[in-house]
């Protein structure tokens, strides 16, 4: 079914694009940060004189022309060195990588929570189209998509941590640490996935092959799960894959609200402190993982639908 050389060629092509894309992304971040002023001010004491300022500026390399600064960055970056964080005075990449697992864990739990809710919700809505259940489920999904992460996070904290005291506001061990942030982060993905599941199920539910399946005497649930869901899966998988990307990137606000020690918080901190090298490393890592994720989804398509060709 899969031709190995073809897959390898495809991977190489994607990889080449990834390099171009990452190059563009780092350039964009670099320009945006530098256009809003150079970061020196934040690294000189408040009583520092003009001379102190110039000294620090030169030490940080911000006195050089922008193209030169970017060139230096690139030269080091291709060797895997993203420079030292201005604030932490440590190499940036390890700083990001040590926090990455926490963010990944949060995103995966949020995704699992979202999918566990969204699939049954979407399937049931499609099967009982226009019923009270459908209306209720879709209203639920819609409100999930409407709620701002920040607001929902605070609301959950006030109810479950302050009033009921079931979980800590931040920190904690295992599930207790993840429950509220994962719920907050996952709601949007849940809502979107539920709606996409519903519409793609609706599309396949009335097709001929399902009638054939039923005619073969397969149970109704067998028809729905094995035949309908499998055929309606591509948009759902796409949605889930893209959502996982959103979750990785979207963890910024959730991590800030719940004081969760992940990459998102590092990103906020880097922005606030104009820590350019750290910001570059964060953006690079997240972008690289999103690109990898996209490749993985494409490969998954092929497994799901043999008609998808490696174009």
């Amino acid at each position: 079914m899969l031709y190995v050389p073809l897959v390898i060629a495809y991977l190489f092509r994607r990889l080449a694009w990834a390099v171009v894309l990452l190059f563009g992304i780092t350039l964009a971040v670099f320009l945006v940060v530098h256009l809003s002023g150079d970061p020196t001010a934040l690294y000189v004491g408040p009583e520092g004189t003009r001379e102190d300022y110039e000294m620090v500026r030169a030490a940080l390399g911000f006195d050089r022309p922008l193209p030169e600064q970017y060139g230096r960055f690139l030269l080091r970056a291709v060797q895997g060195d993203f420079g030292r964080s201005l604030r932490h005075q440590q190499p940036t990449l390890p700083l990001v990588l040590t926090r990455f697992p926490a963010t990944l864990k949060l995103a995966l739990v949020a995704m699992a929570l979202a999918v566990a809710l969204a699939l049954p919700l979407g399937i049931l809505s499609a099967l009982r189209r226009n019923s009270v259940l459908d209306t209720f489920a879709m209203a639920f999904a819609l409100s999930g998509q409407c709620m701002p992460t920040f607001w929902l996070g605070i609301l959950l904290i006030l109810v479950f941590a302050v009033q009921l005291r079931w979980v800590p506001v931040y920190g904690g061990e295992g599930l207790a640490a993840l429950a509220l942030p994962a719920l907050t982060l996952g709601v949007w993905a849940m809502a979107r996935t539920a709606r996409i599941t519903r519409s793609s199920m609706l599309e396949v539910l009335h097709q001929d092959f399902l009638r054939t399946a039923r005619a073969k005497g397969i149970s109704e649930w067998g028809v729905v799960l094995r035949h309908a869901l499998r055929n309606g899966a591509i948009p759902i998988v796409t949605a889930i894959g893209l959502e996982l990307g959103n979750l990785l990137g979207g963890a910024v606000i959730t991590e800030a609200v719940f004081a969760y020690p992940g990459v998102g918080r590092l990103a906020v901190e880097a922005v606030v402190n104009k820590d350019v090298p750290l910001l570059q490393a964060v953006v690079f890592t997240v972008a690289a993982s999103l690109i990898l994720l996209n490749v993985a989804i494409d490969l998954l398509y092929m497994a799901l639908d043999p008609r998808v060709r490696l174009a």
Binding site: I154, A259, V268
Partner: peptide, 8 residues
């Protein structure tokens, strides 16, 4: 403990 959000 660092907790960036005031409300939190």
């Amino acid at each position: 403990r660092p907790v960036p959000e005031l409300t939190t």
